[in-house]
Computed example of a mutant assay.
Amino acid sequence: MELTTQGGFSTRVFGPRPRAGEPATVLVHGLGLSGRYFVPLARRLAERGATVLVPDLPGNGRSRAAAGRAPSPGDHAEALARWHLRLALGPVTLVANSVGCQVAAALAAEQPHTVSRLVLIGPALDPDVPAPHQVARLVRDVPREPPRLYGLAVRDYLVTGPARCAVEFHHALREAAGPFTDRLAGVRAPTLVIRGAGDPLASPAWTRRLASLTGDGRTAEIAGAAHAAHYSAPDATATLIEKFAADSPGGLV
Rank of each mutant, 00 (worst) to 15 (best):
T4M: 09
G7L: 01
F9P: 04
V13L: 15
A20W: 04
P23I: 00
V26Q: 04
V26G: 01
G32Y: 03
Y37V: 09
P40A: 01
R43M: 00
R43T: 05
A46F: 06
R48N: 06
A50E: 11
A50Y: 00
L53N: 03
P55L: 02
A65F: 08
P71F: 06
A77Y: 14
E78W: 08
W83P: 06
R86D: 05
A88S: 10
P91T: 10
T93A: 09
N97W: 00
S98R: 08
L118H: 09
L125E: 03
A131L: 11
Q134S: 05
V135T: 15
P146E: 03
R148F: 11
A153V: 15
R155N: 10
A163G: 07
R164Y: 10
E175Q: 08
E175N: 00
E175C: 00
G178M: 04
T181N: 08
L184H: 12
A189E: 02
P190L: 07
T191Y: 10
L192H: 01
I194P: 04
L201V: 07
A205H: 10
S212R: 15
L213N: 00
T214I: 02
T214A: 04
A228Q: 06
S232Y: 00
P234G: 13
A236D: 15
T237L: 11
A238E: 12
L240Y: 00
I241T: 02
F244I: 05
G250D: 07
V253C: 07
